[in-house]
Design a protein around this nucleic acid. Structure first.
Length: 485
RNA sequence: CGGGGUGUAGUACAUCGGUAGUAUACGCGGUUUGGGACCGUGAGAGCCGAGUUCGAUUCUCGGCACCCCGACCA
């Protein structure tokens, strides 16, 4: 009896909050049907529900990229090993995690290929042929692709051996232009996260030791998960002319002299889905912001055997009305013989922002019941106001989710001036602003002692003189520390 | 790669040197249907290999896989 009870509660309970990764994976992701482990170690099978979110992200970003005149292209997954080795710090950074193809066609290859961990090398080798004159610049290319990084430990969505992303790569005439573009793309990401994903981020610059292998500067968006840990959710790099020199990306300027291009690269991966889940999930499962939710509205007809078909038919009428605005974002759960409660839980678990209950009572009153996923609030709505009310509620839910996440960021972000205060804040899982002397040694020491890393030097961190919380040396800026995923 | 652990039904867990059991999920029949319902019934399992043994899912050894904790990372 005891056993059966436990087993039952296991199946039916979603463990609290997506704060602990394991529970999150097991009970929220697993149950929500977004992804699962593949038979290939460290790789992820993205199920239809998960992929639909990715498709939504692609759709929105593609529009943003087009506004910046960025065009999509596709480059090979196999990169000749020599190309990868051409930029020194780049190969050092990636060497430990590349997978190498040594055999093909039944023979050992004369030259090995690596499976792209990122495409700078192969793309820039090609860019060197595409770029001849200043008239060819800026060159603005994006690619949607999979990449392979042989990480030692993987976590679904956050770090998988293979992941999907977009990587943008550009070439500019002037250093300032490249830097400005890298910053602009970071803004694109920041706005995307806030507007669509309802994830507030802290934009800033990475420290030297945390920056991308081969970059001059790495700009980052850091987000806070519900447990206070940080997630690097998108990055944009100013590559300077490092790669241009390694791959000979040169152009003739107006004075007819040869110059190296100045480059950027920027990316956003399926990790952002992990961030989405860990930002909004609650005890019942996933919570998706309406602006990115593949299904925004589910209509649950309340039926019994005798009236099932008739009520479903009426529910389809509501669906038709809403589809005019929301297209594929509306669905009717017309499965027979299931009790309404069971359907409610399924759709709550999957994060659908708005549920419409529609049964005999509603038909009689010419109304329906709208239920918010974020608050659980039930709102009886006359059918003639349905469309307007739905639009209104979806945008309210979107704003509310962003506000909750913003409040959390404010609440869990502290400024400290002493080492003791720093250590205790980090232990409590907070974001910590503190003075740092700017040296890699101090950074490393802090990491070893507390597990915290410098997430970024926030753009809005003011110049001010102070002393480093660890070394006591002088400092000019406060930087953001946190434990990270 | 270091430290720890686990391999039994779709899932989660038992048991046992000799019929492998429970829950849930799944199929079928029925009663239900405004928050995870119930009754009946059916199908479904020992990672691989070797050894010990009359007999191994169980014990031993080897392999493989996976999980957890570290170093690495979007």
């Amino acid at each position: 009896m005891e056993d059966s009870k436990n087993a039952k509660s296991y199946e039916k309970t979603i463990t609290p909050r997506a704060t602990d990764y394991n529970e999150w994976y097991l009970d929220v992701i697993g149950a929500a049907d977004l992804a699962e482990h593949s038979p290939v170690k460290g790789c992820m099978i993205i199920k239809p529900n998960g992929y639909a979110i990715w498709e939504g992200i692609q759709k929105v970003l593609d529009v943003e990229f087009k506004k910046k005149q960025v065009r999509n292209a596709y480059f090979p997954m196999l990169i000749p090993e020599r190309l990868l080795k051409q930029e020194e710090s780049h190969v050092e950074g990636f060497a430990p995690e590349v997978a190498v193809v040594t055999h093909a066609g039944g023979e050992k290859l004369e030259e090995s290929y690596v499976l792209r961990p990122t495409s700078e090398t192969i793309m820039y080798d090609v860019f060197s042929k595409w770029v001849r004159s200043y008239r060819d610049l800026p060159l603005l290319i994006n690619q949607w692709a999979n990449v392979i990084r042989w990480e030692m430990r993987t976590k679904l969505f956050l770090r998988t051996t293979e992941f999907l992303w977009q990587e943008g790569h550009t070439v500019h005439q002037a250093p300032e232009e490249a830097d400005a573009f890298a910053r602009e793309m970071l803004d694109v990401y920041k706005n995307f996260f806030e507007k669509y994903m309802a994830i507030p981020v802290i934009p800033g610059v990475k420290s030297e030791s945390e920056k991308f292998a081969g970059a001059l500067k790495t700009y980052t968006c850091e987000a806070m998960m519900q447990d206070g840990k940080a997630l690097q959710i998108a990055t944009s790099h100013n590559l300077g002319d490092h790669f241009a020199k390694a791959f000979n990306v040169q152009f003739l300027n107006e004075q007819n002299t040869l110059e190296y291009g100045h480059q950027t690269s920027w990316g956003l991966s399926t990790r952002s889905i992990g961030g989405l889940i860990m930002t909004h999930s609650d005890d019942k499962g996933l919570v998706l912001p309406p602006n990115i939710a593949p299904i925004k509205i589910v209509i649950v007809p309340i039926t019994n055997e005798s009236n099932h078909d008739a009520i479903v038919e009426k529910a389809r009428e509501l669906e038709t009305i809403l589809k005019a605005t929301y297209e594929f974002g509306v669905t009717v759960d017309a499965r027979p013989q299931l009790r309404p409660g069971e359907k409610y839980f399924k759709w709550e678990k999957e994060g659908v922002p708005l549920r419409i209950e529609y049964g005999p009572k509603d038909i009689e009153n010419n109304s329906c019941v709208l239920v918010r996923r974020d608050t659980g609030e039930k709102i009886v709505t006359p059918l003639n106001e349905l469309q307007q009310k739905v639009t209104e509620l979806l945008s309210t839910i979107q704003e509310n989710l962003l506000q909750i996440a913003k409040d959390r960021l404010v609440e869990k972000k502290v400024t400290v001036d002493s080492w003791d205060a720093f250590v205790s804040a980090i232990e409590q899982g907070q974001f910590v602003l503190a003075h740092w002397d700017g040296t890699a040694e101090t950074e490393k020491q802090i990491k070893e002692e507390t597990g915290a890393t410098i997430r970024c030097i926030p753009f809005d961190s003011a110049d001010e003189s102070g002393v480093c919380i660890k070394s006591g040396n002088s400092s000019t800026k406060k930087v953001l520390f946190a434990k990270a995923y």
